[in-house]
Design a protein around this nucleic acid. Structure first.
Lengths: 200, 200
DNA sequence: TCAACAATTGAACCACGATTCATTTCTTTG
DNA sequence: CAAAGAAATGAATCGTGGTTCAATTGTTGA
């Protein structure tokens, strides 16, 4: 009798797993979920299609895990920005600024995370992400400021405003926006949102 | 030699076409695009699956046509509401009011038009619809009011705010919101948006 | 009524990518 | 090194709806 799992084996397995998830992330960030077939991921991870199924039950699960990780990261970035804000207006200002700059810098990924058609499992993660944004903003806004509009509605509106104004900027079959357009949008949205919470 | 198309024949064909489109609309309004398989539409239209292909090249085309018609109607409703508004604040107020009430009243359809995953052809129509909303609101707002924020950004933000705040209300696997929740949302969003354009 | 042809049917076909699994390759331990 | 069994492969399979088309039914004009 021979062969049991050893630390070495386990480490290798974890590397594989990490490699598959990194590959998936990479494929999504390059061409969106549409391009993330099992075959494409396997190619990128330099393994066979079959192997992926020893790590994940199915494609949706893999995509969900990768989405969730990316979402956590995006959320952490926004959370940090909000943490540094000194006033409700500041919260809104920095959220708009950071969100839009990041989105434009990583267009394809941002489009995938925000807008692209995704399987149901992933859609659940997307909602979680959006709720995360709302929670962070609502918290940031309400701690420092009170308005007659519930903080959650304010937060949702900020997220919705940013998102809707980003649609064209992130459209994969348009040319990326030039810097001045981005600056204008940031200024405009920032003003809009700050005015809405009755600041300055 | 016999049989040419006659007015009667043509009329019958048009009825068929209308019937298929009405059936499609009905299926979508009851269960969203996901439920609008060719088989389901054929069943509802009381015809065979094959017949549908003598009227439309493929499923996506049919769905696109039906979406477009519904979208035109929705847009007309908003357009009318905006037409009656006396000020920019009024525009915003009535858009929020009409939009949300209509959406909640026709939850499933609203969810399908706004949020559900749809084929690319249909997605194009959805964008057109959203651009339509933006154009109407932008026009309505800018005609009667000027702000430092471009009317288009304001309009997009209004659309985005409404949309994002509606997501949970329209979620097919949640109970429909009760009347008081709807009223609260309308009030809050209305206040938010009017404040944003610096009114009252 | 009948020949000519259009409308309609619905079961068979297909495309496509996820998933499976018999086979091969690698690791481990005695 | 050999046996035991895990890891990995990738071609074959499968599921799902959209789509086709041979066969049937309906309509027209002489």
């Amino acid at each position: 009798m021979a062969y049991r799992k050893t630390p070495r084996t386990r480490a290798k397995a974890e590397q594989r797993r990490a490699r598959i998830e990194r590959a998936t992330h990479h494929v999504i960030a390059s061409g969106g979920f549409a391009s993330a077939s099992i075959a494409a991921v396997a190619r990128e991870a330099e393994c066979s299609a079959g192997l992926i199924y020893t790590y994940y039950d199915n494609r949706d699960e893999l995509l969900g895990i990768v989405f969730a990780r990316a979402a956590r990261h995006e959320l952490a970035v926004i959370e940090e920005a909000v943490g540094e804000a000194a006033s409700a207006a500041d919260v809104v200002r920095s959220v708009v600024d950071v969100f839009i700059r990041r989105a434009v810098a990583g267009r394809t990924l941002a489009h995938a995370l925000l807008f692209e058609e995704v399987p149901d499992t992933v859609q659940i993660e997307r909602r979680r992400l959006r709720r995360g944004y709302v929670a962070v903003i609502a918290e940031g806004v309400s701690h420092r400021y009170t308005v007659e509009v519930p903080a959650e509605v304010v937060a949702r509106s900020v997220v919705g405003s940013i998102s809707e104004n980003l649609v064209d900027f992130l459209d994969p079959d348009r040319a990326p926006p030039d810097a001045s357009e981005v600056e204008s949008l940031i200024t405009a949205l920032s003003t809009f949102a700050r005015t809405a919470i009755g600041e300055q």
